[in-house]
């Protein structure tokens, strides 16, 4: 007798993902969906889609969804969670949305200890608009608006969100993970699940930064893009748990 050991999560709809071939947004979507399904909370989850490549994620997550203005997902999530404290609320945001235009909303949500989960997808570029420089673009990385490579003089160092958020007292759980191979996918899922579990236990704000790829705008094959995450991105954005208010006490 054979049994199913892996299948598409019920946390995803039947819609075909709008992401480019090999983009790891799809893997991150799966992990979020699997966690919500396994925790049995899909029916009380309200997700917030942001602006960027994941703008259409309201079509993909099989739960109630709201689409937020650029950068405002954490404000929208605050409005939802404050008025529906029994629901499970998450935002799904890219680096442009969260680390650039939406940094204020995200910091203040963390500082208030809002009891929701932020999935922060960092692929070091603005994918949706065609590959412009992001606040997380690496030094020397070429994009359509940094054709000679990002320079520190002009644009400063890439923002390290997990490290920054780990300094916020009421941020309960902050971790940076990657999905560039099987082992890391497994670990990423573990962290995302823990973040949702914390939310279910009313432990407050959690943010999981997931290093992700943009094969098309990086100009690489999907597999080479995964290698680039491993060799380049992780050097600047080390993986690990940056803050856990409940584990170390």
């Amino acid at each position: 007798m054979e049994k199913i050991v892996y299948q598409k999560s019920k946390g995803l709809t039947d819609a075909t993902l709008s992401y480019c071939p090999g983009c790891t947004h799809g893997i991150i979507h799966k992990l979020v969906a699997e966690c919500l399904e396994e925790l049995g909370v899909l029916e009380k989850t309200i997700g917030v889609a942001s602006v960027g490549c994941s703008v259409l994620s309201y079509n993909f997550f099989n739960c109630d969804m709201q689409q937020a203005a650029h950068g405002r997902a954490c404000a929208v999530a605050t409005g939802i969670k404050r008025t529906r404290p029994d629901s499970v609320v998450f935002t799904y945001q890219g680096d442009g949305d969260l680390a650039s235009i939406g940094i204020a909303e995200t910091i203040h949500a963390a500082n208030r200890g809002e009891n929701f989960t932020v999935i922060f997808v960092n692929n070091a570029i603005y994918g949706m608009t065609g590959g412009q420089m992001a606040p997380t673009t690496l030094i020397g990385q070429k994009t359509t608006t940094s054709p000679f490579g990002r320079s520190v003089v002009d644009h400063g160092e890439p923002i390290r969100i997990s490290e920054m958020f780990a300094t916020i007292p009421r941020a309960s759980f902050i971790a940076r993970v990657s999905v560039h191979n099987v082992q890391n996918v497994r670990n990423a899922k573990k962290m995302i699940k823990k973040a949702f579990q914390y939310q279910l236990e009313n432990k407050g704000f959690s943010l999981i930064e997931v290093l992700s790829t943009c094969p098309v705008n990086w100009g690489m094959t999907p597999y080479d893009a995964l290698q680039w995450v491993e060799k380049e991105m992780i050097n600047y954005y080390p993986l690990g748990v940056y803050k856990d208010n409940y584990e170390n006490k």
């Binding site: 199913i4 299948q7 598409k8 075909t16 947004h25 893997i27 799966k30 996918v185």
Partner: peptide
């Protein structure tokens, strides 16, 4: 697990 589009079912 590595398929971004959840295309594969495994038995």
């Amino acid at each position: 697990m590595m398929c971004p589009d959840s295309v594969i079912t495994v038995y």
